[in-house]
Design a binder for these strands. Structure first.
Lengths: 134, 134
DNA sequence: ATTTTTCTACGATTTATTTCGTAGGAAGAT
DNA sequence: ATCTTCCTACGAAATAAATCGTAGAAAAAT
């Protein structure tokens, strides 16, 4: 009866990102990646472990035991999470217009000719699929 | 000599968003908007004030006194902030390819025909400006 | 010129998040 | 089988973020 928010904190997001890269993995694997990409102060193994446990509790990850090892994986996909983020940006900053966000991206982030071409093709595709009202 | 991180917290981000909407404004104005768009538990005025003061300290906002009133405004623009956010997404999730992010957006967020048309026009424009190699 | 209202500064409290130490169990090596 | 090593669970400490109360100054109202 209590569907809590269970939103990931900033720190938990970092763990999720590692899980998205690695897929199903052990605490050890996640911890190693995390400390590898962190310059400076190492964090202790139990810190990462605790994060995983908290996130399990919050249902941000699921866990299965395979071959006597605890394997964790994200319960939300990278795309889902991204789409939520994008929706929020579109609402907040572009009055609900994804197209304007796209224009903003194209205008401010160098995009190769090939990429632009792919976008064009995508637009054409939509076009032909949408116009078949003869 | 010390260029601290001074990254905004989630709560501070909310204030920034209000400042972006309102432009230069008083604590009172920001506080009213904030509590207006919040359902449930009102926060006290001094909470908002404290946020502003902290953010001033962190250089997230600047302050000027006009007509005996403290006016605050964001030191980073909404677009700048957005571009940083986008860059991070592009790096993290799209291997540095903004085009793929665009495709992801177009594929998952309903976009009106007019918007699509504007994107097409934008692409064409780039094209003509880019091909004038003879 | 009092009184009332509104504001800022500041410190303290509360709550959330992050970090780690310790204890005990299982797996692997000697 | 004993000794290491690596693991989990758990609680507690440390740090960060958010919230609020009080005091006194300034402005507005009476």
């Amino acid at each position: 009866m209590k569907s809590k928010k269970n939103k990931a904190t900033k720190g938990e997001m970092e763990l999720l990102e590692v899980l998205w890269k690695l897929g199903s993995s052990t605490v050890r694997q996640v911890h190693d990646i995390l400390n590898e990409q962190t310059q400076g102060k190492e964090k202790s193994y139990t810190t990462t472990l605790k994060f995983m446990q908290n996130m399990l509790e919050k249902k941000l990850v699921s866990r299965e035991i395979i071959d006597n090892k605890h394997l964790y994986q994200a319960t939300i996909s990278e795309k889902e999470s991204l789409n939520e983020k994008i929706s929020k940006i579109v609402e907040n900053t572009f009055q609900g217009s994804p197209g304007n966000l796209v224009l903003q991206i194209l205008g401010n982030h160098k995009t190769s000719t090939e990429e632009l071409q792919k976008i064009r093709e995508y637009l054409d595709e939509i076009d032909t699929n949408q116009q078949p009202k003869k």
